[in-house]
Amino acid sequence: MGDPTSRLRAGYGAGSRHLIVVTAAIVLAGWVALRLAGEATAGRMLLWFLGAVIAHDLVLFPLYATADRVLRALVRHRAGNRVALLNHLRVPALASALLLLVFAPGILRLGETTHLAATGQDQHPYLARWLQLTAALFVLSALTYALRALARRRQSSGKRSERA
């Protein structure tokens, strides 16, 4: 408890470098918040900042985790298979969901007028393209699954004939 360093560790819970960088980050954010407080839309910005965290941690994560649990429960009885059917469903589903998440404004046509003003074009093609990409991802995954399953069967029948 003698020197300042160990007193800081005991009281604060970490060393001085931790205190400095963490405080600096909070002060910077506080300064920005004060600066933006005068803006008419400051409340909206704060809402989007905190809303983004809530949307990820308490909506998106539970959503995809639950979807995955449901999927796992559905394909569990095939767990004996050496080639995991589960992952051949998971991968295209995740890829498709990722594309929807990133390109939602176009796919869901969320900015029709601003998009038209900026580019001179409408948002028509995106939904169909996303559906086609999704279909292509699932077909590709199914083909890989079939090829892997076939290769596995050949391998095991080869082993059997060796034994015989």
């Binding site: 803006e39 839309t41 909206r44 910005m45 989007w48 983004a52 990133v102 390109f103 404004p105 176009g106 969320l110 900015g111 601003t114 998009h115 003003a117 900026a118 580019t119």
Partner: peptide
Amino acid sequence: ATGLLNIQYAYLFGFD
């Protein structure tokens, strides 16, 4: 979120 919405011209957020 703001970057993705900006490059796709969907100004849903209503701030600059």
